[in-house]
Every structure is written in structure tokens, then in C-alpha cells.
Design a protein around this nucleic acid. Structure first.
Lengths: 221, 221
DNA sequence: CGAAGGTTTGATAACGATCAAGGAAGGTGG
DNA sequence: CCACCTTCCTTGATCGTTATCAAACCTTCG
């Protein structure tokens, strides 16, 4: 299940620069930390995580990427993270040499990097200053579009402020993303369930009963 | 190791695009989180930190910048962090509208952002997975040039592997950067002193007796 | 000298990690 | 279709690291 690349055409920002679309299976490694950095990648469909390992095996997932995000820029000749898919994924790949040449691409890059940087800043707050409950609540809130951020639109309908979501991550991956252990993640989820804030339909399929009350638990209110 | 200039610094990057140099005092706020983002900044001399606050006052310092680093790009119309000097600082400032126009500037930006991103990734590992001792050791090692990274050159002289450094940060700032409390930072520093790894000449002036042995405590070996 | 800000140290508590079982869900082969 | 296996998840008991609370100690400076 290495994610044998099957090329298909696609119409994203990269295609016009000689990039080609590649399909990956779930949990396929796109590249390893320390590998020579040869390509720039744009996630078109699915989800990808970037993580780093310490020599003793401790892992930190540093980014969870969504369609439109780019990755593979290391700033040196080696990748600084391992990139692994969380789902089936379609990825546009383009040679780094091409990137050097294109002004338009540089412009796109600046915009993407700036956004990822903002996400990393917020994640640093989560890792450095939030409690376990706040981390899990923040994590779940990030999966709800248009809610919880500065531009939160509030409940669309006062009576029913629920939301269904798929995690696409195992408890271990969530734990490694949130800087917790798998047991703590599991306990917090169970606790949210017990308190009626969420309903766990399947391990990776969760219904938020009241988005606003979950949002109150993120530490940002 | 690359040894290469991290962020293609230099006194020229901004001045030729209509930027102007501004001097700041120690602990001066350059802009606040939430302020409209109008300018791009390049740190020329001194040190600057970026931090975020939670409503209840918890603070996380998300970046500590050095000459050559750029900041102020928010990816939206509001700054996502507060920027505050740690020392007297000289900063090149340029209007964001100018940045939009220049291809050369975009190229510089991509390179700088990529580097800062790598630093943020490593810091996420520190915040999410390292112990208090490992955090402080990593912090101190980052202040030693050419050591501790992938391209560590090792002791220049086997007999004397010492190094003098200035922190330019209070214990509180260090704590907020490392995701610890001021007491824990103080205790770890005292412990390193007791163990003979460092010598504390003044609160913010520390001599590393043996860089290599400190490096062993970063969790990366 | 006294005040203020920053730092250190001690005592105690709490949160999350660790250790240890047990349980559900999905996949495979008989 | 069921037995079995594997993988992932949950729960419980206990431990340890770091946070919290409190007080004393420097250092600098008017």
C-alpha cells in the first residue's frame, strides 16, 4: 500500500506549471524527514499530515493539511518532516527547479506559507498553554467551517447548533498532533460524551451536539 | 550542513524597495495582535519576539526573531501576533502594498517564510513532546551558532568546549516561549548549574561549560 | 536606604503520563 | 457464517512531572 502513483490530469494552480497529479492511498508516506527535497506538493484532495520524530520514538504531528495547502519546501536540501496521507489523496507535484523560475508560483507560495504560519502560531499556543480538554475542543472546532475563529458566524439556527464530522485520524495521530497521550485523548472524548457535548457515532465520526458549548471549552473565550 | 545564510539578510533587501529603517527601544511593542496589518518588517539588528495571548492572560511566545527574519505578514487584514522587541532593535519597514508589486521581494519572502516554518516545526516538537529539561537545553543550544543541529561541527577544541551567551530574555519570557512556568525554568537552570553543565554569571548571562553535554540533554540525541 | 522588579526556593497539589487489562470493530481464512 | 486475529480504543489504578501557592532573596536605581 505504498500509494503507487497513478497520474491523472487536473486543473489546479500547479498543472499550468508542469506539475502532475498523483494519487496516494491512505497512510502512504509521500516523503521521509531527511530525504532530499526535490519537489513541491499541493494537496488537491484528501488530507495529509507532517510529522517529526525524536530519536527515542516520540512523535509530533506538526501540521494537518487540507486541500489547497502546499508542502515540501524545506529551506534546505533535506525535508524537515515526514509527509504521510491520512486519507486517499490527490496531490499535485512539481519540480522545485520549476518553482525557482516562476514569479506567479512564488506569489502563490507566499500566500500559502503565510496562512500555514498563522496556523502554526495558533498551534503553538495550543501546545504550550492549553489544557487537555482545551486542546481536544480546539481540535474539533477546527473541523467546523466558519466557526470558532475571529469570523465566527454563530449558530445559524438557534435551536439546532449541531454538526457532524469525520476525524480521518486515529486516537494516536490526534494525540501526537495535540501533544498528549492516546489515553488522555480517549478520556477527554469520553468525558465530552458523558457531558453531552458530543456524540460518538464511530471512533472517527463525531457529532457535536452544540457547537457553541464546545467552542466555549477551547480556552479562547 | 548548509552553513548557508539562513534568511538572506543583509542591509539591502528592503531599502531598495522604499523601506525605511526605524529604531526601537527595549520592550517596545511594534504592533499588537488584532491591529490592522499595514507593513512588512525586517529585523536588521537586535531581537524581537512574537506572542499571542489567551483571554485569561496566558501567553505563548511563538517566535523569537533574529536579524534577517521578516514579520508582519498575517495572511489577513489583522496581525495574528503581538510583536515586541527584546533588545534595542533596528527594523526595516515597508508598506505591504509595495510587497505585492515586487517579484524580487516575493522571492525573498518565500525563502524567509520557509525557514521560519522549519523553526516553528521544531518548536512544535519542543512544546508538544519535550520535558522541561529538554526544553531549556534546546533553548540554550539554539543560541550557540553551528552546534546542535544536523550540521553540528562538534567541539572545535576537545579540551575546551565552553561558550558564553546572553539570553536577552527574562525568565518569564523564556517560560512563555518554552511553554513552562517561570518557576520551572528557574529550577531547571539552577539544576543545570548544580550539575556543572552551566555557570550563571548573571540572570541573563550564562556560560556553557561543555556544549556537548548540554546538547546531549536536548532530547535529540 | 528603601523600593521595585525580577529571580530563586520550598511545600503542596493537580493534571496528565504511565502501566495494565479488557473490549469493540474490521479483516481473513476455514 | 463463524472463529480467530489484529488493530485500535477505552477504562482503571497509580506515579511523576510540572503547576500553583507562598515567601524570601538579589540587583538595580532613585
Amino acid at each position: 500500500m505504498t500509494g503507487a502513483p497513478i497520474c491523472t490530469p487536473s486543473k489546479t494552480s500547479f498543472s499550468e506549471f508542469g506539475g502532475k497529479a498523483v494519487q496516494y492511498d491512505t497512510h502512504a508516506v509521500i516523503y521521509y524527514e531527511g530525504d532530499p527535497a526535490k519537489r513541491l506538493y499541493e494537496l488537491v484532495k484528501g488530507s495529509v499530515m507532517l510529522y517529526k520524530l525524536l530519536p527515542d520514538g516520540r512523535r509530533q504531528v506538526v501540521e494537518v493539511l487540507r486541500p489547497g495547502d502546499i508542502f515540501g519546501l524545506a529551506g534546505s536540501d533535506e525535508n524537515d518532516c515526514t509527509a504521510e496521507t491520512l486519507t486517499n489523496a490527490e496531490i499535485q507535484e512539481i519540480d522545485l527547479k520549476q518553482v525557482e523560475r516562476s514569479d506567479a508560483l512564488q506569489r502563490t507560495l507566499t500566500r500559502c506559507l503565510t496562512n500555514q504560519m498563522r496556523v502554526l502560531h495558533e498551534h503553538a499556543v495550543l501546545l504550550g498553554r492549553k489544557s487537555a480538554v482545551e486542546r481536544v475542543a480546539s481540535f474539533l472546532m477546527h473541523l467546523v467551517p466558519d466557526r470558532g475563529g475571529v469570523g465566527c458566524v454563530g449558530p445559524i439556527d438557534d435551536s439546532d447548533d449541531g454538526f457532524d464530522l469525520r476525524l480521518h485520524m486515529t486516537r494516536q495521530e490526534i494525540a501526537d498532533y495535540l501533544g498528549l497521550t492516546i489515553e488522555t485523548v480517549s478520556r477527554v472524548v469520553s468525558d465530552l460524551k458523558r457531558r453531552g457535548v458530543i456524540r460518538v457515532d464511530r471512533a472517527d465520526q463525531i457529532h457535536l451536539n452544540k457547537v457553541c458549548s464546545l467552542c466555549q471549552m477551547t480556552g479562547m473565550h
